[in-house]
């Protein structure tokens, strides 16, 4: 294909500018000396200081990170197991299972959220009236909801890796004396790993980014960062939100750069190994 000329490069730059301008604005105004969101009044770290003493926001941040981490890890393990199981199913039943798997992906978030909240309210009420407890929607329902919409992403990123697998190597490992689980751990798992890690990352991203489903399933006592912002938007939003956005953005950026460095180092290592092997032949 032809390389990009000046105009197409300019177009790309403009679109990326569009994507990043609001984030840039958030970051700049997190260091503003006054509460204003549009007039620069000098450098200050006061919003960062206030942020760490704001119990509501810190609590929401903790909930968000905890739910996202727990849900994506559980979804990652459950999704990998499920993908292996689905792969072994007969064609027809696999088709049915995979279309159910697609429901949370293609359905509007609000429908997923609303339908889960109906289920949770019914279940909690039924439980309370039979056992005389006073349970409410809260962290656990939030976690279940997140796991439910995370698993499909993991399955969809692990399944292609299963398809690429050579079916003979598992048997070869067993022939060489490995038990079923050892063969899985030493032979199959390393091949699936890129898909699993990718699934974990996507699941975590989706959990962090979610607002709608959390909003309907978290009940009134627990709230995630997004819910906190949404509640604030009705009153007045404090620049502490800018500060926390900046911190989140910075940590993600550092994380991604680290992953990238590791990846390119691995690439280089693999290339060198290949070169050495080639010379030995």
């Amino acid at each position: 294909m032809k390389k990009n000329g000046f105009w197409s490069r300019l177009f790309m730059v403009l679109v990326f500018l569009f994507l990043y301008a609001p984030i840039f604005v958030l970051i700049v105004f997190s260091f503003n000396a006054t509460k204003s969101r549009s007039v620069w009044a000098g450098f200050s770290l006061q919003w960062y200081v206030k942020l760490f003493s704001d119990e509501a926001i810190m609590e929401a941040l903790r909930t968000t990170l905890l739910v996202s981490a727990a849900a994506s890890v559980v979804a990652c393990i459950a999704g990998t197991a499920a993908a292996i199981g689905i792969y072994a199913l007969k064609r027809k039943s696999r088709g049915i299972v995979l279309s159910v798997n697609n429901i949370p992906l293609t359905n509007a978030d609000i429908v997923t959220g609303v339908s889960l909240s109906l289920l949770f309210v019914l279940a909690v009420n039924a439980f309370n009236s039979t056992f005389g407890t006073r349970w409410e929607l809260g962290f656990w329902t939030l976690l279940i909801a997140h796991i439910t919409f995370d698993i499909p992403y993991v399955i969809l990123s692990v399944l292609p890796k299963l398809r690429q697998l050579d079916p003979n190597i598992y048997e070869a490992a067993q022939d060489l004396g490995a038990t079923g689980f050892t063969a899985f751990r030493k032979v199959i798992l390393p091949d699936l790993m890129p898909g699993i890690v990718n699934g974990l990352l996507i699941a975590f991203t989706m959990s962090i980014d979610d607002f709608v489903i959390s909003y309907f399933t978290a009940g009134s006592k627990v709230s995630t960062l997004a819910m906190e912002i949404y509640a604030m938007a009705r009153r007045k939003i404090s620049p502490e939100i800018n500060a926390i956005s900046t911190l989140l953005f910075a940590s993600v950026l550092i994380l991604l750069i680290l992953i990238n460095i590791r990846q390119s180092r691995q690439d280089r290592l693999a290339k060198r190994q290949k070169a050495i092997l080639a010379t030995k032949k």
Partner: peptide, 11 residues
């Protein structure tokens, strides 16, 4: 996407 979309919309 790693920053919640409400943060970006708020901006």
């Amino acid at each position: 996407m790693w920053m919640n979309f409400l943060l970006r919309t708020y901006s």
